[in-house]
Amino acid sequence: MNPSEIVIWFIGAGLGTLLLGLLLKWVDRKVTARVQWRVGPPWYQPMVDIIKLMGKETLMPVTARGTGFLLAPVIALATMAVAATILWRSLWDPSSPFLGDLIVVIYLLAIPALMTMLGASASGSPHASVGASREMKLLLSYELPMFLAILVAVARSGWTFQLGGLVTAQAQTGPVVFSISGALAMLIAIICMQAKLGLVPFDVAEAECEIMSGVYVEYSGPALANWLMTRAMMLAVMPLLLVEVFWGGLYRQAWWGFLSFLGRYVLLVVLVVLIRNTNPRLRIDQTMKVFWFGLTPVAIVALVLALIGQAEGIAWL
């Protein structure tokens, strides 16, 4: 693949994911509104919000360290664009070797959380510093079970860390999720996705009523818009990762392949929205207990099952 093609993919996937993310943000708000007997906003509302913020002033607190404070959201947005490019590219053409593999994607997806901490710490607000410490604990909580869950899919696909390889392997043996270990792993991945997206019950780092949107409290104008766009892209990218790793990716040989992909994708998004609307916020210590003592052992069991299944040739395990 030549460099100009890479640039085209980067711009296309980046902008496309941003628009898709904002549209999904609308799905989130609309479904939430319907669940709560409200009407909800029109489809273009999240985009209008961003445009409006872009025209506002970015206020800098006197206590803030400017460089880190303003650089953090930009880096977060850029990493999301890269992650989106890798995922869409491997989804579209699994056979072509591309820039990165699964491990790169996992690292890229951790960067927005790190940048959130950086930006929050740089803002000098006590609310943001509490938010940053919670974000760090949250990251430490969900990364391990998330990685173990993905390892289940990797093990079931013949130890390939190439995203394309995972999709190809699933095309031959069936989606990972249609097995006991795969189903367990996907369940864990969905809960970790909720934490990664920072939504209820794991929105501890923002927690409006406790620490006034914590990590983002000092952000305004274009910088805040940057964070909102990062969050929107995250909402678009995380279900995509799950569909690719656990649920077969995109089948391009027939028209229904696209429909089925869209169905699975939207289903995951709606699931995220429903979880967020049927739970109260957990405390940070409770969150850590859930991930470390609840989900991590289950993920290990799933991994062991997957290994046994591979060794003994039992497809359903």
Binding site: T32, V35, Q36, W37, R38, V200, P201, D203, A207, E208, C209, N277, T278, N279, P280, R281
Partner: peptide, 15 residues
């Protein structure tokens, strides 16, 4: 409910 981040309870109770 709202203070706990459980906005569905907030909206339902007020309905």
């Amino acid at each position: 409910g709202h203070f706990l981040g459980y906005n569905t309870v907030f909206m339902w109770a007020w309905k």
